[in-house]
């Protein structure tokens, strides 16, 4: 049963096309990364998922049902631009937001206190929001999105502006939530986080979907054709006919081969020639490279008047 199903959704603001024909599915227990450059339609897509705006065409399904506001009690949302009532005490604020999500006051209070402890901000409970640091405010909003134990957690740029310690704390929390079987969707620019955390991704640019699927699937589309070799001695193996491009930085060679099989031949040849190999690594394409390549292509094609097929 998919948690989120977007079917060919489209949204136009006046003349600007924000989202065009977006289709994606999020399964339970997955960490889903929504990637894309600034202004690519990530936030617009998220807003349609939670019914803040309605798509001009296409359908949104949540928890295998057509979108309905009552389903929102099972969704936790952390917007990109954080907002809390400045003059309100942290605990009152959390209880209020919990109640809006359908909790009764006692439960909301109990859970708020437990979460504050878990997120290591117990000392902030009685303070007003305006007295807190930005990172702390972000943690509070993070808690607010999770108080009602949602089955779907949607977070727009959850780690931006956090120090590494707090970012790790949030990541660990998200991982724990995933292991409880919840679906988590987050958008980010930080590819290293996506690479570490996500099971599946969707890459959008200019409102259109460029890539989507599980991390392994996507990477398998990109050839593992780059090799880094750290060696001492004879470098004549670099003249192997299967090597397309080779750079030798005195003992560290970066080569590009025709296909994956060539890499093993190169290694065999180097060993045969008596070169001492310290390290031999077939490098996977990083998500960052895939991202940049695809986004560049989408912009280039668009400028050339072409269409992007993804």
């Amino acid at each position: 049963m998919p948690i989120v199903e977007l079917q060919n959704i489209r949204k136009v603001y006046d003349t600007k096309v924000a989202v065009e024909g977006l289709t994606l599915t999020i399964e339970p227990g997955t960490m889903f990364g929504l990637l894309g450059p600034n202004g690519s339609g990530k936030t617009s897509s998220i807003r349609m998922m939670i019914g803040m705006t309605v798509p001009d065409s296409g359908t949104v399904r949540l928890f295998d049902k057509p979108f309905a506001r009552t389903l929102l009690h099972r969704v936790g949302y952390l917007p990109e631009e954080r907002g809390l009532y400045k003059k309100m005490k942290v605990i009152d604020q959390l209880v209020f937001l919990g109640q809006l999500h359908g909790l009764d006051e006692a439960t909301a209070r109990k859970r708020s206190l437990a979460w504050c402890e878990r997120m290591e901000i117990t000392e902030a409970i009685g303070k007003k929001t305006e007295e807190l640091s930005k990172g702390m405010q972000q943690k509070i909003q993070f808690i607010a999105a999770l108080l009602h134990e949602p089955d779907l957690v949607i977070m727009d740029e959850p780690f931006s502006g956090l120090d590494p310690v707090n970012a790790t704390l949030l990541m660990d929390t998200l991982v724990a939530l995933r292991s409880e079987g919840k679906a988590i969707l987050f958008s980010t620019h930080r590819m290293d986080q996506v690479e570490k955390l996500c099971d599946a991704i969707a890459l959008i640019s200019r409102g259109k979907l460029l890539l989507s699927g599980s991390m392994r699937e996507i990477k398998s589309h990109y050839p593992r054709n780059r090799v880094q070799i750290v060696f001492t001695g004879d470098d004549s193996f670099l003249r192997h006919p299967g090597i397309v491009e080779a750079k030798n930085y005195s003992g560290i060679a970066e080569i590009k081969v025709q296909d994956e099989a060539v890499a093993q031949q190169v290694l065999a040849e180097a060993v045969a020639r008596g070169t001492h190999i310290n390290r031999f690594e077939v490098i996977e394409p990083t998500l960052e490279e895939i991202f940049i390549e695809n986004v560049r292509a989408s912009f280039g094609d668009a400028e050339a008047g072409g269409r992007v097929d993804a």
């Binding site: 803040m52 929102l72 009690h73 969704v75 917007p79 631009e81 907002g83 400045k86 809006l100």
Partner: peptide, 16 residues
């Protein structure tokens, strides 16, 4: 005030 502090976005995710 709610617009400038952007609180509405959280609120509108649950209420009309």
């Amino acid at each position: 005030e709610e617009k400038t502090s952007r609180v509405f976005e959280v609120l509108l995710a649950t209420i009309k």
